[in-house]
Amino acid sequence: MTSLYTGGCEHVHINAKAEPIDNHVCHCNVCKGVTGQQSTHVAFFNYADLSVDHPEKMNRQPFNKENPSGPLELCTCADCGAALMLDDKQKRIRIAVPNVMGYEEASFPKPTYHAFYDALKDYPKPSDGRPVYEGLHPDFVWPKPA
């Protein structure tokens, strides 16, 4: 299998065999809390398009501590603690955060829009020419489970 994007750590490798189905700059408070960044480049892949070579070496924890029963889990390396990916328990998507999860960020396509921005944020609305939405892009459709 040829990988378009490879991330992870020295113990667990994540490989993408297709382009992301959604690629945005996320402004949500959960991403901000997990990454410590004001905004984060996030790429959604169809579940089967992002593979893991050693899933047995991954620890899983709720992505959103305010909603621990939510569908997303943060997967980290059991050996070194590196963030690896977000995994959807419903098997619709897998998520890469290029600058946090071991990817060469420059190899990823540029985000096409800003997601989860609201006027109550403590910083100005993005003005880089990309559309800004209060949620995901209005045309985004959740894939069916794998």
Rank of each mutant, 00 (worst) to 15 (best):
V34D: 08
S3A: 15
F63A: 07
P20N: 07
F63N: 08
L72K: 11
A96P: 00
P20M: 04
A106R: 08
S107M: 05
E56N: 12
H13E: 09
S107P: 00
D118C: 05
D87K: 01
E10T: 14
M101G: 06
G33R: 15
P124C: 06
N15V: 03
T6L: 11
I21K: 06
C9H: 10
C31S: 07
Y103P: 08
Y123T: 03
A96N: 02
C31P: 12
H24E: 01
C9T: 09
G81S: 05
D79A: 11
D128I: 03
V25N: 09
G81K: 04
K57Q: 11
N23S: 14
S51E: 15
P68S: 07
C28W: 05
P109I: 02
A18S: 13
T40I: 01
T2D: 03
D49V: 12
K125T: 09
Q37P: 00
T40V: 05
H13S: 10
F63I: 05
L74E: 10
P55W: 12
T76E: 01
F63E: 01
C31E: 10
L86M: 09
F44L: 08
V42S: 05
F45M: 04
Q61K: 11
C75W: 07
V25M: 14
I21N: 04
C77H: 05
F44M: 03
N99D: 09
D87V: 06
L72Q: 12
L74G: 04
A82C: 02
K65S: 13
T76M: 07
E105L: 08
L72C: 11
I95T: 13
K91F: 00
T2F: 14
N99E: 12
A115F: 06
P20E: 13
L72W: 15
A119D: 15
M101E: 00
K17C: 14
R92Q: 10
P98I: 04
G8E: 08
V97Q: 03
M85E: 02
A48F: 00
I95S: 07
A115T: 08
L84R: 00
R94Y: 09
A115W: 02
V132W: 00
F108G: 11
P109Y: 02
E105T: 15
H54Q: 14
Y117A: 06
H13A: 07
F108R: 06
T40R: 01
K57C: 09
Y5E: 15
D49F: 07
C28G: 11
H114R: 00
K91C: 03
P55E: 14
Q90D: 12
Q38G: 01
Y123N: 02
K110N: 07
C26N: 04
T112V: 07
C80E: 11
A48R: 11
G81F: 01
N23E: 05
G7Y: 09
F44N: 05
I14N: 04
E56Q: 13
Y113R: 08
E105R: 03
G8M: 04
G70K: 13
T76P: 07
P98L: 05
G102T: 08
P98S: 01
P71T: 14
P71F: 13
K110L: 06
E10Y: 10
V100I: 09
K121D: 15
V52N: 02
G102W: 13
N15F: 13
K91L: 00
C26H: 06
D122G: 09
P126K: 08
P68T: 11
N46G: 11
